[in-house]
C-alpha cells in the first residue's frame, strides 16, 4: 500500500477523526488550525480558523454537519463543516483535552484539564443540530474529579454511560443522564496515565492506550478487562478495526526524548494486534516521531495515523490484509454425522 501523506500542519498532530461515512478526515495539531481532508485522495477541503491556542481534540457529528474542537485556549468551538464558519464558543477556566459527540449527535461531552487551582471536569452539552439555530450556553451537568483527573472520556452505547479514563490508570463509568457515579476499576498499572480511549463500532466495549506500555479492551457494562495487548513502548493511541478483528496501537518514546535515539529504536510504528488472540501480527513504519493519534476508517478499509512529526499518513489496506486469517479462523466446523 502507498500511504497518502498529508502535510497541512506545522506542529505535532494531536487528534484525527474520520466522519461516519469515512470520506472526510479531520485533523488537529498544536498549531492553531483544524484541517478537513478528503480521505480518498488526500485533497484538503478547507481549514477552520479561530482558535488561539494548541488544539487538543476534534470530533464530528454523525451527519457531518457540525464539528467540535477543544483547545488550550480554554474553549470548545463548534463549526459548520461545510463552510468553516464558527457557530459557538464555550469558555472554560482551563484547557479542553477531549470532546466527543454521542451516537445521535445531540450531546457533546468535554474533558477539561486540572490546572491553576481548578479541578478536572467532564461537562456535557445539548447540541442543536441546526447550524443556524442557537446553542445552549450552560452544560447539562458537570462531573468534578477531586482525586485523579480524567484524561479522556467517551459515550457508551445508547448514550447510557459516560466512560472516563484517568491519570492514575483507572477507568470509571458515570450515568449519562445526570453524571452520577456508577463504578471505578483500576484497569492499568497504578499511576500510569491513560492516553487514549476509543469505542468499538457498537460502543459496547472500548480500547485504552496507556503509558504502562499496554492497551486493554474493556467492557462498558462491567469495566472488566477483556483483552490485554503488551508492547515494548509507551502507547499514545489505540483503535479497534471494524471488518477484521484487529486493533491498531501507536506510540513511541516520549516526544522529549525523540532526538536522542535513532528512528529504528524509537519504535515509531503502528502495531497491529489480533483482537482476540492478543498477538502482534505486523507493523507499519513511516513516521519520524511517535504516533500521537490513530483513526480507523469506519468501513475498515484503511486507517490514518498522525505523528509528532506533523504528518498525517492515510493507508488503505492491500488484499493481504483482508485475506489474513488464523488457522482456527479458516476452520469451518463440519456437521457431525450421527449414525442411527
Amino acid at each position: 500500500m502507498r500511504p497518502i501523506i498529508l502535510n497541512g500542519h506545522e506542529r505535532a498532530l494531536t487528534q484525527i477523526k474520520f466522519n461516519r461515512d469515512g470520506d472526510l478526515l479531520f485533523s488537529t495539531a498544536k498549531d492553531h488550525v483544524v484541517c478537513a481532508w478528503f480521505s480518498a485522495n488526500g485533497e484538503r477541503l478547507g481549514t477552520y480558523h479561530g482558535h488561539q491556542g494548541a488544539l487538543w481534540t476534534v470530533d464530528i457529528d454523525p451527519t457531518s454537519t457540525i464539528l467540535a474542537t477543544g483547545a488550550a485556549d480554554n474553549t470548545i468551538r463548534l463549526w459548520e463543516v461545510r463552510t468553516g464558519r464558527l457557530l459557538k464558543t464555550w469558555d472554560f477556566p482551563t484547557a479542553v483535552k477531549r470532546v466527543e459527540f454521542n451516537e445521535d449527535g445531540n450531546l457533546l461531552l468535554a474533558v477539561t484539564e486540572q490546572r491553576m487551582g481548578y479541578l478536572g471536569t467532564v461537562v456535557a452539552f445539548n447540541i442543536n443540530s441546526d447550524v443556524d439555530g442557537p446553542q445552549e450556553d450552560e452544560p447539562i451537568f458537570k462531573i468534578t474529579f477531586d482525586e485523579s483527573k480524567a484524561t479522556v472520556a467517551a459515550w457508551s452505547y445508547l448514550t447510557k454511560f459516560i466512560v472516563t479514563a484517568h491519570e492514575d490508570g483507572s477507568v470509571a463509568t458515570w450515568d449519562a443522564k445526570d453524571g452520577s457515579f456508577i463504578q471505578r476499576v483500576q484497569a492499568h498499572e497504578q499511576d500510569m496515565l491513560i492516553t487514549d480511549m476509543q469505542m468499538a463500532a457498537d460502543r459496547t466495549y472500548f480500547i485504552t492506550a496507556c503509558r504502562d506500555k499496554t492497551a486493554k479492551v474493556i467492557d462498558v457494562n462491567t469495566l472488566q478487562v477483556l483483552k490485554t495487548y503488551v508492547t515494548d513502548t509507551p502507547l499514545n493511541t489505540a483503535a479497534i478495526t471494524p471488518l477484521k478483528e484487529f486493533v491498531v496501537l501507536g506510540g513511541g518514546q516520549a516526544a522529549s526524548e525523540v532526538t536522542t535515539t535513532s528512528q529504528r529504536q524509537g519504535k515509531f510504528e503502528a502495531r497491529f494486534y489480533h483482537k482476540i488472540f492478543e498477538e502482534e501480527i505486523g507493523r507499519v513504519k513511516g513516521h519520524f516521531g511517535p504516533l500521537n493519534t490513530i483513526a480507523v476508517h469506519p468501513a475498515g478499509t484503511g486507517y490514518a495515523s498522525g505523528g509528532e512529526d506533523g504528518y498525517v499518513r492515510i493507508h488503505f489496506f492491500d488484499k493481504a490484509y483482508f485475506d489474513f486469517k488464523y488457522e482456527v479462523e479458516r476452520f469451518q466446523p463440519q456437521e457431525v454425522q450421527t449414525t442411527a
Binding site: P3, G286, Y321
Partner: peptide, 9 residues
C-alpha cells in the same frame, strides 16, 4: 504519496 509499504499480517 509515500513510498510503497508492504504490510502483510
Amino acid at each position: 504519496v509515500g513510498e510503497n509499504i508492504i504490510f502483510k499480517p
